[in-house]
Amino acid sequence: MKEQWRLLKTNFSTAFTNMAVDRAVLVTSSEGKVPPTVRFYGWKPSAISIGYFQSLEEEVDLDTCRKLGVDYVRRITGGGAVFHEEELTYSIVIPEAHPQIPKNILKSYGRICGAVMKGLENLGIESKYVPINDIITGGKKISGNAQTRKAKIVLQHGTVLTDVDVDKMFSVLKVPNEKIKDKLIADVKQRVTSIKHVLGKEIRFEDVAEAMKIGFEEEFNVELAEGVLSKEEKELTKKFEEKCFSARDWNHRR
């Protein structure tokens, strides 16, 4: 019988809730209270997440965010700034010691990205993992990923772009040199793609989630059983949302 992991489909939430849920599951997982957990989610309203080590004000145009109603949040994972709009985001929370997870961090990126690649394959998209943390198709990025390890638990979350508006993305993200902004936007348009662009048609969020579910099941040879957040996870989510991810101290700390 296949090992059973928990699947959470939390649909669309704010940036603060989304980051708080990932952290809450990391906590309950570190206490051995929940099985390995895969979650699929989206962002409403659109939001920017920045990496743990990034400076909020250097990366994000806060005024434009306010005007457009785009939220911003600092992640507990490293990596770069991401504009979350038309995408499916996944997270996986699993003990470091689990036999399916390589001890080596880079190898574990590759392994988890393997699940996303199988998910894309189920949608008819061939892709490959490009270290450190990207998945590309036809030479263009379709998924970015970031991992942290805390309390002997691996948390990796990442995006699968369903569509992308590069012009809007650069209206809310700052670039190091304004003089070359136009060129940078043109470059990014060449380097980033989406499911819609590759397939030439729109795919529903639910269908991407189903393809990814099967991708994770295939990659890890497990069964994902749909579950819900525990009472404790809901309480932790509320706490992390209020005290951390929506707090100025956290988001402006660098």
Binding site: F53, S55, T77, G79, R254
Partner: peptide, 10 residues
């Protein structure tokens, strides 16, 4: 020290 790198523990 800022950027889009990764460091463990953060």
């Amino acid at each position: 020290i800022m950027g889009d790198f990764f460091a463990y523990p953060e």
